[in-house]
Simulated scan of single mutants.
Amino acid sequence: MPVSCWTPRPRKVQQVTTPLWIELDGVVNMRDVGGLPTTDGGQVATGRLLRSDNLQDLTEADIDDLVERVGVTDIVDLRSNVELQLEGPGPLRAHNLTHHHHSLFRDDVRAVTAEEALVLPWSKKDQAAADADPRLDDDYWASHYLGYLAHRPDSVSAALQVVSQSRGATIVHCAAGKDRTGTVVGLALSVAGVSDEHIVADYVATGERIERVVARLMARPAYGEVLAGQPMDHHRPKPQTMQRILSVLTEQYGGAAGWLSAQGWSEEDITALRDSLRG
Rank of each mutant, 00 (worst) to 15 (best):
H100G: 01
H100E: 01
F105K: 14
R106C: 00
R106Y: 06
D107Y: 12
D108L: 06
V109N: 10
R110K: 07
A111E: 10
A114L: 11
P121A: 15
W122A: 11
K124E: 12
D126Y: 14
Q127K: 14
A128Q: 14
A128W: 04
A129D: 14
A129K: 15
A132N: 13
P134Q: 13
P134M: 04
P134Y: 13
R135A: 09
R135W: 11
R135K: 11
Y140E: 12
A142S: 15
S143K: 08
H144W: 01
L146A: 11
H151S: 11
R152E: 04
A158P: 02
L160N: 10
V162A: 09
V162N: 05
V163C: 05
V163I: 14
Q165N: 11
R167G: 14
R167N: 14
R167D: 15
A169M: 05
V172C: 09
V172T: 10
C174L: 12
A175N: 11
A175V: 04
G177V: 03
G177Y: 03
K178Y: 01
K178T: 06
D179M: 10
T181K: 00
G182M: 07
T183S: 00
V184E: 00
G186N: 02
L187V: 07
L187N: 08
S190M: 03
V191L: 07
G193P: 03
V194Q: 12
S195D: 09
H198M: 15
I199T: 09
I199R: 10
I199V: 14
V204R: 09
A205E: 04
T206Q: 05
R209Y: 04
R209D: 02
E211Y: 05
R212N: 04
A219L: 12
R220L: 13
Y223V: 01
E225R: 14
L227M: 13
